[in-house]
Design a protein around this nucleic acid. Structure first.
Length: 896
RNA sequence: GCGAGGGUAGCCAAGCGGUCAACGGCGGCGGACUCAAGAUCCGCUCUCGUAGGAGUUCGUGGGUUCGAUCCCCUCCCCUCGCACCA
C-alpha cells in the first residue's frame, strides 16, 4: 500500500456525515416526476458482497449523475426481508427470524453507508414488517375479488429439505433440484393458492415487444417462459369414454395419425388402471417421464380419427405430459420425432402425409423410415386436402373438422404462492367447516405473524392460539390458513411502495405513483430475468386494470449487470475466492472500490477483480488529490500578488496556444463523458476523465499553467468523477474553494461537435505518430528542430471538389478551377492521388483549423522530442516542403 | 434440438463499411528520475524498412462492395436460457 497522504477513512466518514446532516439524498413528496433509479433490493443476508457493491454503485453513480444534471431523483433502498434463510439461521442460533433479520439489516445498512451510496433512507421499506406485508394481504384479497386467485389441489414441487413447496421457476435443471439447497425436488398433492398469471399471458407476452429499454436476452427469456404456441384442439372419440381433446400444432398431419396417446395421469389412464393390471403396473412402475426412452402400454382401446374416421390404437405413454397441452395427443410418427421413436419401438405404422415442397412436378413422399420429416410441406395421401400447403391445410382442417378449434397453448403456469413456512406473509384466509375458505376482511388486516416457535414442521401450524379463530362470515369456529406467501409477492410491487412508504390507507399513493412511475432505470442481476421481472410486470398490469395505476409496465430501462469474478470464476464461498468489500473499503476506501469497478468494464459485462487494478485506481485518486492541493497552494500566493496590485500574470503567447489546447480537451472530455454517463457506459466516461487528468498533469509539468484554464480542468474532473467517487470529489470540490456539495453542484457542460473533436484529436495524434516514425526510421538521434507545414488552401478545395464530384474524370473537373490549374504539376499529382483514393475520401478540418490545432498541440511534440516545433502555414513555407503536405496530413521537416 | 449473445494481437478488451496494424488496460522491453528498489513519467511491444513506406492480420470458407474486423451466407467453437412442449 502506498504511504502517501490520502486518508480515505477520514475523508469518507466526514462526507457521509455531512450528507446525512444535510439530507442531500432526500426526495420530497412534492416533486413532480423524479428520475426513478432503482437497484434490486437485497435479501438481508448479513453482508454486502461484491455483486451488491457493483449493482448499487451503478445505480448510485447514475442517480448522482442525474441529480447533478438538475433532475429530481428518487433513489431508495429497502429489504427483501422475508425468506427461508432467516428461519434456518434462527433455528441454528436459537433466536428468531425477526431479530436475526433486523441484525442483518443493521449491518448491511452500515456497510451501504460506508460505501457512500446516496439513498433516501426516509423511504426505506422492510417487507417483513406488518406495515408492509399487510399490503401483500390486501393485494391478495383484491386479486381474489377480481377472480385472479384460485385455490386448487395441485401437484406441487416439494423440497424435502426446505420442507416447502417451490414454484416451477424455483426448480432448476433437468435433475429438478431446489434452487436454494440443490435437493432433488419431489411431487406432492396439496391444496394451494394460485395467482392466475396465465390470465395475463398474452398481455405479458405482447408487451415485451415494446420494452425497448430492456436487454434482448431478458426479453427472449420471458418470451420463452410464457411459451405461447398457436395450434388447434381437436377431439378424438375413444370407445366407451367419449371424446378426448388433444392439442396439436400440426393438424395438417392428422391423416398420418396412427396412434393416440394419453399421459399416465390422464383421468382416462387412471380409470383404465383400476380395471387393468398391466396398465396399472405401467403407470406405477414403468412410466418414467424423465427418461430418454418413450415408454408406453397398449390399452386395447381405439380412438376415432375425426378426419379419416379411422380407428387407431390408444396407448398410455410416459412421454405425454399431463401439464402440456391437454395431456393427450394424436401421434404422427412420420412427422414428429418423439412419435417416430415410439412407433418404431412399438411397431406402429409410420405413414407420411407431408411431402417437401417440390421444385416442379408432383410432391413425393419423404423417406420417414429412419427419421421423421418435421418441416412444413405439401399434403399427400390426405384425401381432399392433398396438394395443400401445410399452412393452408391447418386453416382448412381446423375449420372443417367439427370438434376442431384454433387454440393457443402456453408454457406459463399459474403462480403457486403457498409456502409451508413461517417467515413470510400469512395468507389472509380463514378456513371454516361450513363456509370453506373465507378471505379475512380488510378491516381485520394485517394478519400478523405469531411469535416464532422453534419446531420441525411449520411453526404456524404449531401456533395453536393464533390458528384458532372465528369465521368472518358465520362467526363459527374456524382455523387460519397456515401457509405464507412466496416472497416474490413482496418484490412484485415494492417499487410502488417507495413512492409513499408510510401510507396507512393504501399500498401506494395512486396519484403520486402515476406521476413518479415507471422506474426509469432498474438495475439488477440476470438471475431475476424471469421470475421477479415477470411477476412485477404481472402485478403492474393488474394494478393498472383494477386500481387505476396509469402504467402497465414497471421498468422502462433495465440493466442486467455482469458478475464480478476472480480469475474468470464466479466468486463463491465454496470456492473460497471471495473478495470482501469490507476489506477493500478499509484498505483503499469506498471511492477506490467504486471507481475500480466502474472503470473495469461496461456494467453488463463480467469482469475480473484485480488487486493491481485496485491499487492503480487508488494511486490515481491520490495523484489527483496531490494535483489539486498543489494547485491551490500555488494559487494562493498568486492571488495575493494580484490583489496587491502587481497586475495579472503576463501570459506568454506560447502559453495561450497551450491553454487553448487544454481548453479544447476539457470541452471534449466533458461532452464525451456526459454522453457516456447518459448511456451508463461509465467505463468510457471514466477513461475520458482520466485522460484529461493526464493531459492536465502534462500541462502543469511542462509550463506554468494558465490558472483559469487549469482550474477549469480540475474542477471539471472533480465533477465528472463525483458520481463514481463521491467522497474524494467532495473533498477536492471543497479544496478548490467551492461552497456546497459537489453532489448538488451543476454538471459541467460543453458545446462541442464530436466529429470535429475526433478529427482534431486524430490530426494531432497522427502527426505525432508520423514524427515518431520518421525519427525512428531515419535514425535521428537528436532532432534540433521540427517544422510542421499545413497544406495549401487549394488542396483543401481540391479535396472538397473530389468528395462532391461524381464526374468520371476528376482531374478534368479539378483543372476547370483556375486557382487549382495554376498549380501545374502539383495540381496534377495531387489530382492523381485524389482520383486513386476517390471513394475513401472524407473531409478534414479546414486549413486554419488544422493550423490552430497543431499550433496548440505543438508543446506536446516539443516536450516529447525536446526540440522546438514550428507550425507553419502554407503561405509561409517553401515550395519543397509543400509537396508532402495534404489536408489532414501536414508535411514534416526534421532537422538534426 | 430451439433461442439469445459471443469468437479481435501474449492476456483482458474497444471498434461494428473507408481516417484500422486496429482505442484502452495488464504483462513484457527500453529510457528519465533514484545510491538502489518501488512509485511516477516518457516511449516500444505482427514482419521488413536510414523520412512518415511495404507486406501479412481481427474463428473457418464463400459472397456483396471501388473498399469488410465491421454487412450477407456455410461451417467450427464458447457462454447463457429453454427443452420428451404435442
Amino acid at each position: 500500500m502506498s504511504d502517501a497522504g490520502y486518508d480515505h477513512a477520514t475523508v469518507e466518514r466526514r462526507w457521509q456525515a455531512a450528507w446525512d446532516e444535510a439530507n442531500v439524498y432526500r426526495t420530497p413528496d412534492d416533486v413532480e416526476d423524479p428520475t426513478y433509479v432503482l437497484g434490486m433490493y437485497p435479501y438481508p443476508s448479513g453482508k454486502l458482497h461484491m455483486g451488491h457493491v457493483r449493482n448499487y454503485t451503478i445505480t448510485d453513480a447514475y442517480a448522482r449523475f442525474r441529480r447533478m444534471q438538475g433532475d429530481d431523483v428518487l433513489h431508495p433502498m429497502g429489504w427483501d426481508a422475508f425468506g427461508l434463510p432467516a428461519e434456518n439461521a434462527a433455528k441454528e442460533r436459537d433466536t428468531n427470524p425477526r431479530d436475526w433479520t433486523f441484525d442483518c439489516i443493521e449491518t448491511m445498512t452500515e456497510q451501504m453507508e460506508s460505501m457512500g451510496f446516496g439513498y433516501d433512507w426516509d423511504r426505506e421499506i422492510t417487507t417483513c414488517t406488518p406495515d408492509y406485508y399487510q399490503w401483500n394481504q390486501w393485494l391478495f384479497s383484491r386479486f381474489y375479488e377480481e377472480d385472479l386467485v384460485e385455490r386448487r389441489d395441485a401437484e406441487v414441487n416439494w423440497c424435502p429439505h426446505c420442507e416447502t413447496v417451490l414454484a416451477d421457476e424455483q426448480v432448476e435443471g433437468e435433475a429438478e433440484l431446489c434452487w436454494r439447497c440443490d435437493t432433488p425436488v419431489e411431487q406432492r398433492e396439496l391444496e394451494q393458492w394460485f395467482l392466475r398469471i396465465t390470465e395475463y399471458a398474452d398481455d405479458l407476452l405482447e408487451a415485451i415487444d415494446d420494452l425497448e429499454g430492456w436487454p434482448n436476452s431478458v426479453r427472449q427469456m420471458q418470451r420463452n417462459w410464457i411459451g405461447r404456441q398457436y395450434g388447434a384442439e381437436v377431439d378424438f372419440g375413444i370407445e366407451s369414454h367419449g371424446p378426448v381433446t388433444a392439442f396439436t400444432t400440426r393438424i395438417d398431419t392428422i391423416h398420418g395419425a396412427t396412434f393416440f396417446a394419453l399421459a399416465p395421469d390422464h383421468p382416462i389412464s387412471e380409470e383404465l388402471a383400476e380395471g387393468d393390471e398391466e396398465i396399472r403396473r405401467f403407470i406405477e412402475e414403468e412410466a418414467d417421464p424423465d427418461g430418454d426412452e418413450p415408454n408406453g402400454v397398449e390399452t386395447g382401446l381405439t380412438a376415432t380419427n375425426p378426419a379419416t374416421g379411422e380407428e387407431i390404437p390408444v396407448y398410455v405413454a410416459d412421454f405425454v405430459l399431463s401439464d402440456v397441452g391437454t395431456g393427450a395427443l394424436m401421434a404422427v410418427p412420420a412427422h414428429d420425432e418423439r412419435d417416430h421413436a415410439f412407433a418404431e419401438k412399438n411397431d406402429i405404422e409410420i405413414r407420411p402425409v407431408i411431402a417437401p415442397e417440390p421444385d416442379d412436378g408432383e410432391p413425393e413422399a419423404p423417406d420417414v423410415e429412419d427419421e421423421a420429416f418435421t418441416e412444413d410441406g405439401v399434403l399427400i395421401d390426405s384425401g381432399e386436402y392433398s396438394g395443400l400447403e401445410s399452412e393452408r391445410a391447418r386453416e382448412r382442417l381446423t375449420e372443417d373438422i367439427d370438434s376442431a378449434a384454433a387454440a393457443a397453448q402456453y408454457q406459463l403456469r399459474d403462480w403457486g404462492i403457498s409456502r409451508q413456512r413461517y417467515w413470510g406473509t400469512p395468507i389472509p384466509v380463514v378456513h371454516c367447516d361450513d363456509c370453506g375458505p373465507v378471505m379475512v376482511p380488510e378491516e381485520d388486516l394485517p394478519v400478523e405473524l405469531p411469535e416464532f416457535i422453534n419446531t420441525t414442521g411449520n411453526p404456524l401450524d404449531a401456533a395453536e392460539e393464533w390458528k384458532q379463530t372465528t369465521c368472518p362470515d358465520c362467526g363459527g369456529p374456524a382455523e387460519r390458513e397456515t401457509d405464507t406467501m412466496d416472497t416474490f409477492v413482496d418484490s412484485s410491487w415494492y417499487f410502488l411502495r417507495y413512492v409513499s412508504p408510510g401510507l396507512e390507507e393504501a399500498p401506494f399513493d395512486l396519484e403520486r405513483a402515476n406521476d413518479w412511475m415507471p422506474v426509469d432505470q432498474y438495475v439488477g442481476g440476470i438471475e431475476h430475468a424471469v421470475m421477479h421481472l415477470l411477476y412485477s410486470r404481472f402485478f403492474t398490469k393488474v394494478l393498472a386494470d383494477y386500481e387505476g395505476l396509469e402504467h402497465r409496465e414497471p421498468f422502462t430501462n433495465l440493466l442486467a449487470q455482469g458478475m464480478v469474478q476472480l480469475e474468470g470464476e464466479k466468486m463463491s464461498k465454496s470456492k473460497g475466492n471471495v473478495v470482501s468489500p469490507q476489506r477493500i473499503v478499509e484498505e483503499y476506501g469506498a471511492d477506490t472500490a467504486r471507481l475500480f469497478m466502474m472503470q473495469a468494464a461496461q456494467p453488463e459485462r463480467d469482469f475480473d477483480w484485480s488487486e493491481e487494478g485496485v491499487q492503480s485506481t487508488y494511486a490515481f485518486l491520490e495523484r489527483l488529490q496531490g494535483m489539486v492541493e498543489e494547485y491551490v497552494a500555488s494559487a494562493a500566493p498568486r492571488a495575493a500578488e494580484d490583489a496587491s496590485g502587481q497586475g495579472p500574470r503576463a501570459d506568454e503567447p506560447d502559453d495561450d496556444a497551450i491553454a487553448s489546447y487544454v481548453d479544447a480537451e476539457i470541452d471534449a472530455t466533458v461532452a464525451i463523458a456526459t454522453a457516456e454517463y447518459d448511456d451508463l457506459t461509465f467505463n468510457k466516461a471514466l477513461r475520458e476523465t482520466q485522460d484529461l487528468v493526464r493531459t492536465l498533469r502534462q500541462y502543469v509539468d511542462y509550463t506554468e499553467p494558465h490558472a483559469e484554464t487549469y482550474e477549469r480542468g480540475l474542477s471539471a474532473v472533480v465533477r465528472l468523477l463525483a458520481p463514481v467517487a463521491p467522497h474524494i470529489a467532495e473533498e477536492l470540490h471543497e479544496t478548490l474553494g467551492n461552497d456546497g456539495f459537489v453532489a448538488e453542484a451543476a454538471w459541467p457542460t460543453a458545446e462541442i461537435d464530436r466529429d470535429r473533436v475526433e478529427k482534431r484529436r486524430q490530426l494531432v495524434e497522427n502527426t505525432r505518430e508520423d514524427i515518431r516514425d520518421i525519427v525512428d526510421v531515419a535514425g535521428i538521434e537528436d532532432p534540433t528542430g521540427i517544422e510542421v507545414v499545413v497544406a495549401p488552401d487549394w488542396k483543401y478545395d481540391a479535396l472538397e471538389i473530389a468528395i462532391e464530384s461524381d464526374a468520371d474524370n476528376l482531374i478534368g473537373e479539378l483543372m476547370s478551377e483556375s486557382h487549382i490549374r495554376e498549380q501545374g504539376d502539383a495540381a496534377a499529382d495531387y489530382g492523381q492521388d485524389l482520383q486513386a483514393e476517390r471513394e475513401a475520401l472524407s473531409m478534414t478540418l479546414g486549413p486554419e483549423d488544422e493550423h490552430a490545432a497543431l499550433e496548440s498541440a505543438a508543446w506536446l511534440i516539443e516536450r516529447e522530442f525536446d526540440a522546438p516545433v514550428d507550425v507553419v502555414r502554407a503561405a509561409d513555407a517553401d515550395e519543397a516542403a509543400l509537396a508532402n503536405a495534404e489536408p489532414g496530413r501536414p508535411a514534416i521537416e526534421i532537422d538534426d
